[in-house]
Amino acid sequence: MKQNKYKEPLPLAVIEAARAGDAGAMEQVLRYYDGYINKLCTRMLYDNYDQPHVCVDEYMKHRLQNKLIYAIVCNSR
């Protein structure tokens, strides 16, 4: 059976609080987009025996999270 992938949007109050600099609201925004960011940062790596491993590139994930925070806080003024 196919699962419904619909996700409730973030409340406007949370977005406005994140724009105002509230750390808790910013954490909610980051958690909301965490699955999407993980999907964007997923990479196929190969070990010494050429076995493939799917993993999240943590460096890229932190860069995308920082860009999201910057876009919310700095571009809102």
Score class of each variant (00 low, 15 high):
residue 5 K to A: 05
residue 5 K to S: 08
residue 7 K to C: 09
residue 8 E to V: 00
residue 8 E to C: 01
residue 9 P to K: 03
residue 9 P to C: 03
residue 9 P to L: 01
residue 10 L to A: 03
residue 11 P to I: 01
residue 12 L to K: 15
residue 13 A to D: 12
residue 13 A to R: 13
residue 15 I to F: 03
residue 15 I to L: 13
residue 15 I to A: 00
residue 15 I to Q: 01
residue 16 E to R: 15
residue 17 A to N: 10
residue 18 A to P: 10
residue 19 R to N: 06
residue 20 A to T: 03
residue 20 A to C: 07
residue 20 A to E: 07
residue 21 G to A: 11
residue 22 D to E: 13
residue 23 A to V: 11
residue 24 G to E: 13
residue 25 A to C: 07
residue 25 A to G: 07
residue 26 M to H: 07
residue 27 E to M: 06
residue 28 Q to D: 03
residue 30 L to K: 08
residue 31 R to T: 04
residue 32 Y to L: 01
residue 34 D to R: 13
residue 34 D to H: 06
residue 35 G to M: 05
residue 35 G to K: 13
residue 38 N to M: 09
residue 38 N to I: 00
residue 38 N to Y: 05
residue 39 K to N: 08
residue 39 K to S: 12
residue 40 L to Y: 00
residue 40 L to V: 11
residue 40 L to M: 14
residue 41 C to Q: 11
residue 41 C to H: 10
residue 41 C to S: 11
residue 42 T to M: 10
residue 42 T to W: 00
residue 43 R to H: 01
residue 45 L to M: 08
residue 46 Y to M: 11
residue 46 Y to G: 04
residue 47 D to G: 09
residue 47 D to T: 08
residue 48 N to M: 05
residue 50 D to I: 03
residue 50 D to E: 10
residue 51 Q to K: 14
residue 51 Q to C: 06
residue 51 Q to A: 03
residue 52 P to Q: 06
residue 52 P to M: 07
residue 53 H to R: 14
residue 53 H to L: 11
residue 56 V to W: 13
residue 56 V to F: 11
residue 57 D to E: 12
residue 57 D to R: 11
residue 58 E to H: 11
residue 61 K to N: 06
residue 61 K to F: 00
residue 63 R to D: 14
residue 64 L to E: 05
residue 64 L to W: 07
residue 64 L to F: 11
residue 64 L to M: 14
residue 65 Q to N: 12
residue 65 Q to L: 10
residue 65 Q to E: 15
residue 65 Q to F: 06
